Amino acid sequence: MTSEIHAAVTAAIAARTEQLWDVATALHAAPETAFAEHRAAALLTDALAADGFEVRRGVAGLPTAFTGEAGSGSPRVALLLEYDALPGLGHACGHNLIAAAGLGAALGVRPVLGEVTGSVLVIGSPAEEGGGGKITELDAGLFAGVDAALMFHPGTQNWSWAPLTAQAELEVTVHGRAAHPTGNPTEGRDALAALIQVFNSISVLRQRLPAGGHVQGIITRGGTATNIVPDLAEGRFGLRSLTTSALHDLIAQVTDLAHHTARATDTRADVRLVRAPYAHFHRNEVLDALFTRHIEPHGIVMTEPEPGVYLGSSDIGNVSAAVPAIHPFVAITGPDKSDHTPEFAAAAASPTGRSVALAAAQALAHTAVDLLTEPEVVKAAWAAHG
C-alpha cells in the first residue's frame, strides 16, 4: 500500500512539471524583496487554493505570509516556501526554486491524504534575507503541532544538511556634541570618531573569535558636513557565531565594547538588535537520511558538509530549534561559484535549476509520505531532535 502511495505522488508531481517551472520562472522574472513579495504570495496561494488547500493569507501579522493546509490531525508535516529576492540581485539565492519545489511537494502529496492519516501544512515564509519571517511565524504559533518542517535550498554543493551559523545584526548609535572644528573644537564630542574607535576595538576582538565567529560592520551615518563635528553617528554590525549560545555572548561583548568606548570618548552609545537573531541550524539525521534516499534516484548524491566550512545563516535555524527540520543544499552551479551573485541568479532560471527543483519536489514529497505513513519515523525524528 505504501509503495502505491509513493508511486501516486511521483506521478502527481510529474504531471505538474510545467506548472511548477512556470511558477519558478514567474517568480524569477519579477523578484520582490523582503516583506514586499505580494505577487509571489498571490501566485502561490492561488495555486494552493485551486488544488483544494485551505488557504489563510496575511498570517502572523505579515501581509505576504500565508498557510495552506490539507488533511487533518497528526502527523502534521510542514513544507516551507521561501520567495523573497535580494536587492539588486534578484533571485541570486534561488528562492524561486525553493517556492516551486515546496509547492510541488504539497500538490504531489495532497491527493493521497485521504489514504493516510495526518495533514500537510504549507507555510509561506517571507523575508528570509534579513527579515526573519519564520521567527515571526514561529512566535505566532504557526508551527504548533508540527512534527517536521521540510525545505531545500539551492547551493553550490550537494550537502545533506546545512552548517548554518547563528546571526544577529546590531545597530550602534553614538551621540556626541556638535561644534566647529576650528572655532570651538574643545566644545565638540565627535560621534564619528567614537564610532570609528568602536570599529578599531572590534578589529582587536575579531582576532580572538573562535571558529565560526565573525563581525562585519558598516557606517550608515557619519555627519552632514566637514566643518561640523558630528553629533550623531550610526553603524550596523553583522555578528555570526557557531552556536546560538556563542552568539548571545558575542552580542554582549560588542555591546559592552560600544558602551566602554563611549565612556572613554565622553559620548553616549545606544545599542539595539535590528531584528530577532537567527539561531544556528539543528541537524536532524533521521530526516536528512530520508531526503538523501529520495533524491538519489534523480542522480543527485548527497554528502556531508566539508569539515570546518560554515555557511551563512537563516531563520530556518529558529524553526529547527523548535521542531525536527531539514535544509539540505542541492547544487545548481559548481563548487567554484557562489550564491548572492549574478551568476547564481542566472542558474536559478537555468535547465539545471529546473531539474534540481523538480528532483527536490519529489524528495520533499516522499519524505513527507514517510512521515505520514510510518509512525516510527516520526518518533525517531523527534528522538533525534536536539
Results as ranks from 00 to 15, higher is better:
residue 2 T to H: 12
residue 2 T to F: 08
residue 2 T to M: 14
residue 3 S to F: 06
residue 5 I to Q: 02
residue 5 I to M: 04
residue 6 H to N: 14
residue 9 V to Q: 00
residue 14 A to W: 10
residue 16 R to A: 05
residue 18 E to S: 14
residue 19 Q to E: 15
residue 23 V to F: 14
residue 24 A to M: 10
residue 26 A to V: 15
residue 27 L to P: 01
residue 28 H to C: 12
residue 30 A to P: 02
residue 33 T to H: 04
residue 34 A to W: 10
residue 40 A to K: 06
residue 43 L to T: 10
residue 44 L to C: 05
residue 49 A to W: 07
residue 51 D to P: 01
residue 52 G to W: 03
residue 54 E to A: 11
residue 58 G to I: 10
residue 62 L to N: 02
residue 66 F to Y: 15
residue 72 S to M: 04
residue 76 R to E: 08
residue 78 A to L: 00
residue 79 L to A: 09
residue 83 Y to A: 10
residue 88 G to M: 09
residue 100 A to W: 03
residue 100 A to G: 00
residue 102 G to K: 04
residue 104 G to P: 02
residue 104 G to A: 04
residue 108 G to K: 02
residue 110 R to F: 09
residue 119 S to D: 04
residue 119 S to F: 06
residue 120 V to D: 02
residue 123 I to M: 04
residue 129 E to Q: 08
residue 129 E to N: 07
residue 130 G to V: 09
residue 135 I to K: 04
residue 136 T to N: 08
residue 137 E to P: 05
residue 140 A to G: 08
residue 143 F to S: 00
residue 145 G to I: 09
residue 145 G to R: 04
residue 150 L to C: 11
residue 156 T to C: 10
residue 158 N to A: 07
residue 162 A to M: 12
residue 166 A to S: 00
residue 167 Q to G: 05
residue 167 Q to A: 12
residue 169 E to M: 13
residue 171 E to N: 12
residue 172 V to Y: 05
residue 172 V to Q: 08
residue 178 A to Q: 07
residue 180 H to E: 05
residue 180 H to F: 01
residue 183 G to N: 03
residue 184 N to S: 11
residue 185 P to E: 14
residue 190 D to L: 07
residue 191 A to E: 12
residue 191 A to M: 14
residue 192 L to S: 08
residue 195 L to K: 05
residue 196 I to K: 07
residue 196 I to N: 08
residue 196 I to R: 07
residue 197 Q to C: 03
residue 197 Q to Y: 11
residue 204 V to Q: 13
residue 206 R to T: 01
residue 216 Q to L: 07
residue 217 G to P: 01
residue 219 I to S: 08
residue 220 T to W: 12
residue 221 R to G: 14
residue 222 G to V: 09
residue 222 G to H: 07
residue 224 T to G: 11
residue 226 T to A: 15
residue 229 V to A: 03
residue 232 L to M: 09
residue 233 A to I: 01
residue 238 G to Q: 12
residue 239 L to N: 05
residue 242 L to C: 09
residue 243 T to N: 08
residue 246 A to Y: 02
residue 250 L to S: 01
residue 254 V to Y: 03
residue 261 T to R: 13
residue 264 A to I: 09
residue 264 A to H: 05
residue 269 A to P: 00
residue 272 R to F: 00
residue 274 V to K: 07
residue 277 P to N: 05
residue 278 Y to Q: 00
residue 280 H to L: 09
residue 281 F to Y: 10
residue 285 E to M: 00
residue 293 R to E: 15
residue 293 R to T: 13
residue 294 H to L: 06
residue 296 E to T: 13
residue 297 P to G: 08
residue 298 H to T: 15
residue 302 M to P: 07
residue 308 G to F: 06
residue 311 L to R: 14
residue 312 G to E: 04
residue 315 D to P: 02
residue 316 I to C: 02
residue 318 N to S: 07
residue 330 V to K: 12
residue 333 T to Q: 04
residue 334 G to S: 11
residue 334 G to F: 08
residue 340 H to Q: 03
residue 340 H to F: 06
residue 345 A to V: 13
residue 345 A to I: 15
residue 351 P to Q: 09
residue 351 P to K: 14
residue 352 T to P: 00
residue 353 G to W: 15
residue 356 V to Q: 05
residue 357 A to E: 03
residue 359 A to K: 01
residue 361 A to W: 08
residue 362 Q to A: 02
residue 365 A to C: 00
residue 368 A to M: 01
residue 369 V to Y: 07
residue 372 L to H: 04
residue 374 E to V: 14
residue 376 E to K: 12
residue 378 V to P: 13
residue 378 V to G: 06
residue 378 V to H: 00
residue 378 V to C: 03
residue 379 K to H: 11
residue 380 A to S: 06
residue 381 A to Y: 10
